[in-house]
Design a protein around this nucleic acid. Structure first.
Lengths: 297, 297
DNA sequence: ATATTTATCTGACTAAAGTCAGAGAATGAT
DNA sequence: ATCATTCTCTGACTTTAGTCAGATAAATAT
């Protein structure tokens, strides 16, 4: 008997093979335009707006020597020019010449042709079916590539996430939100061994955060749970919560509490679903109107 | 305003990018095991059962000289051995040594790991959603890669398709089917400028056929419409029918007729959907019990 | 029996992709 | 002011991938 998990894995592998073949093959060679693939790729990434060479190197994952040579080749063909960046003369900035822009448009058109060639043979119904399945796959692959990791709460990324969180509260709450009026909690509170600050990232971009601090012996408090608008519905909140609880157990916190506001409907639902039960107010913060607690284990 | 078609194309391109990144990257390098990618691919394709070198070359699409060198390299590493095939000493047969089998298992395991790493971060509901979308995409990409082309009706592939068709009739009809009792129609009838024989192929494999012959001045007759079991529901019958009608117009046939049997339910539905209307019997063939006609244009 | 075709192999290439060790200029840290 | 770091560039490589023109042996066609 083939187990459920085995069949699932087989399905994923089959998908990988089919799609890699159908897309990879067409893409790679078809888009080449006689030019080495590496050059085309670089040209395409430089794009209409240009790009810092440093950034380009990271995106394509190339050795700096190799990158330099690629750019030299494109330059010699009159497709791009490189200039120093205003702020930092070490960093070079690559941008398309008019000739390069033409070439770029051609690559772009071919990309469209590839897409069209996939859709063309299908009738309306199947086409829509394919498109909706593609949208779903994209979204779910995005979800599956989200990584959650602890980071210092005072790191620039963490600060950025917090700002997003505060902006959200400010938009949702009647009368806005001002962190100065709320219970203070600084980076120190969200640092092991008493707390932690988690950041969820999708392909490098931060898309969510969540924090844990101590609220007395054996008690943890969850704060700052935020998921970017663009990444809602991917189960990131759930995963953050699970990881926060795990961290709490690691710190010996057997009880977790948190507060929230009724305008944060998704958060309320998440907590209830995960076995948090409502308790009387345990603080007199001006913003929360619901208080929850859960005993772990 | 962005047109509907443009948005669709954008969706396909976005999908291609996402999938190529998430799967392509992991697959290619992660599965490499320090070995050149070409060698790994060959090793994997040789697989547990071994394979004829000829077949392997076709599958990987490699030059025979290059293929030979790849095999020599794998042989030198003690991963495979090659022997002559019993029937034909020109053809070499490549198979894994025990060491090669171990290596193969490792690649296989890594493939599983890649699949698992995609599924693992998702909860049950999203996992199922992803898997079903993958199955759908696979199927629809298969449909979109089906090519229809005219071929001589006496080619081996055409003969093979016809045999499949007759086998199907034989299985479906009460009392079976014997082409000798039916109206004769030979390769000559299905040849331009009076007829044509179309074959639908998916990645090289024939998955359907359909034929057109003349049935008098300005009248065409469609025969031998068959779609492989494994390729039903992909719209191939519809596409064959459309291309046959187009061919008929090209031959100046303004009226098309055809006969069928009630046991071929899909065919009947297809004809009705495409505007064929039932007419009195126009032949006394023993097998058909429904006769259709359509005026083109 | 001879010619042709098929499958593989070898040698001699080329192009593309990528690595590594510095060098040099600009910037940031102390 | 000095030192370390960052970013790019150059030269000198290697590896991978692939092509092309025969050579060879076995099988097939005439």
């Amino acid at each position: 008997m083939i187990s459920r998990a085995t069949a699932d894995i087989e399905q994923v592998r089959r998908f990988n093979r089919t799609v890699a073949r159908r897309i990879g093959v067409i893409n790679d060679r078809f888009l080449g335009r006689g030019r080495p693939f590496g050059e085309s790729r670089a040209l395409f990434e430089i794009g209409t707006d240009g790009i810092e060479v440093r950034e380009l190197r990271i995106r394509l994952g190339l050795d700096s020597g190799y990158m330099s040579r690629l750019l030299r080749a494109l330059e010699k063909d009159g497709l791009i020019k490189t200039t120093a960046t205003p702020g930092d003369a070490r960093v070079r900035y690559a941008s398309l010449t008019p000739k390069g822009q033409k070439e770029w448009n051609e690559i772009d058109r071919r990309s469209d042709d590839v897409a069209t060639s996939i859709l063309a043979p299908l009738d309306e119904r199947r086409r829509e079916d394919l498109l909706s399945a593609m949208a779903r796959i994209e979204r779910l692959l995005r979800a599956s590539s989200v990584m959650i990791a602890a980071e210092p709460a005072d790191s620039p990324t963490a600060q950025w996430c917090l700002q997003q969180y505060f902006d959200l509260l400010n938009a949702r709450f009647d009368g806005g939100y001002n962190p100065a009026n709320a219970q203070p909690a600084d980076a120190h509170d969200f640092t092991p061994p008493k707390g932690v600050f988690l950041i969820a990232r999708a392909t490098g971009e931060p898309v969510g955060c969540g924090a844990l601090k101590s609220a007395g012996p054996g008690i943890g408090e969850i704060k700052r749970v935020w998921v970017a608008e663009s990444a809602r519905g991917l189960g990131i909140g759930q995963r953050l919560l699970e990881e926060l609880e795990e961290a709490a157990l690691g710190f010996g916190q057997k009880c977790i509490r948190l507060d929230t506001n009724r305008s944060l409907t998704e958060a309320g639902a998440l907590y209830r679903k995960n076995g948090y039960r409502e308790v009387p107010a345990f603080n007199d913060d001006p913003y929360p109107d619901h208080w929850f607690e859960k005993v772990l284990g």
